[in-house]
Design a protein around this nucleic acid. Structure first.
Lengths: 219, 219
DNA sequence: ACCTGAACACCGTTCAAGT
DNA sequence: ACCTGAACACCGTTCAAGT
């Protein structure tokens, strides 16, 4: 399958016309995927970017799918640690949620790619372990603690997926303004005003995580 | 763009070789998309299914994108109402969340398709209105009420997205069992056991919605 | 008004042939 | 060991030509 020959050409030469390198292929692919998502990665575009024939790429990475797989595995391995902050258990659990969200947002397409390739559990293990420590500190154990860990994980991942969709989505029609005219607001103009402006994901995340965690940790 | 000529050929004839119909195209496309998702819909497969030339489809629906758009708009328009159940505000809000989840789960690819085409606000309006009523009944108003509505909506949509990913994902490697051996469990074997078995999305949804709503509605 | 096949510009992938 | 172009089976889409 994969020849893992790491040659000595560590300098990613453009001028120095050295041999094509598995490393170079991965780097160029990572650049394309990080910006535009995996479906924007075509072997032909990648070859053009690298200045080689399309088929050379196949020699180094096998095929498109194993290229993406290598990319995903490397990214997951390079994810930083998660350090809880704050004093109360609520604060510390919420800070783990926030850190996880930030991690995922740095790699907008990673969650889906990881899932499709079956690496989800490995990816979330560090966050889960951090959560377990804090939930233990809050006095919860056993299956109840497990339930809390999973609820937080689902919530964060779900929120990030929604956020990402919002960012990629075009302008909504009809916009929220038209939909939430005074008519639909049931005599609450302040609410109508609030709902007629696009949601601020940051705020939604804060309020929902705070509410979720306090609801979960209450005995 | 779109000729909305609804002919009299309402019988979806296979034996009766009547003219091809915009309606037939939409129906066949809906079938393919509902099962396998939009990326499985190719014009050539669709033509084969309908027994016509590929290019005939273009006459009726313009192109692939407007076909998908028509599909999405129809599905959104056909979504049922949302009726809250229960007595306490917490129960009623949670029941709206549950109903919304059920709606979305019936159309596994709808959320993403709706988003890509800018119909999100319209799609969620009924659920939002139901939520507003219940949140009002719980004594919350103005921007705080709006925050609650949005937190619930984000949470449900996010959960459904995560659920859908889990279903489509292959077997995870390494599995949860290996990861959550006694080693990583920090002296809590019951928790390790709970986390080493795949998550039950139904349960996660229940506990997280309950916690979220109670956290949100507390004054 | 509706259908058709040929043609074009894209894909991923294989393979025999080069050095 | 590494690179190459030709070829294959797929895409969506356009268009001139049919009835």
């Amino acid at each position: 399958m994969l020849c893992n020959t790491v040659t000595t050409a560590s300098v990613k030469g453009k001028d120095t016309r050295t041999h094509l390198d598995r490393e170079q292929v991965l780097a160029a692919a990572a650049k394309l995927v990080k910006q535009q998502g995996p479906q924007s990665l075509t072997m032909r575009k990648l070859a053009a970017e690298l200045g080689t024939a399309v088929t050379s790429i196949y020699w180094h990475v096998g095929n498109r799918e194993s290229l993406l797989e290598a990319l995903v595995e490397r990214t997951v391995a390079d994810l930083g640690e998660i350090r809880p902050r704050g004093t109360t258990p609520e604060q510390r659990v919420a800070s783990v949620a926030g850190a996880l969200r930030r991690q995922l947002r740095e790699h907008p397409h990673l969650v889906a790619m990881v899932h499709e390739r079956g690496l989800t559990e490995r990816m979330f293990l560090p966050a889960q372990q951090a959560l377990v420590r804090e939930v233990h500190a809050a006095g919860l154990h056993g299956s109840r603690a497990a339930g809390v860990v999973r609820a937080v994980q689902f919530h964060v991942v779900g929120h990030v997926l929604v956020e990402r969709q919002r960012e990629r989505a075009p302008a909504q029609r009809p916009g929220e303004e038209e939909l939430w005219g005074a008519l639909t607001a049931a005599g609450d103009p302040a609410l109508a005003r609030a709902l007629s402006v696009p949601a601020d994901p940051e705020k939604v995340f804060d309020t929902s995580v705070r509410a979720l965690v306090s609801g979960l940790l209450r005995t």
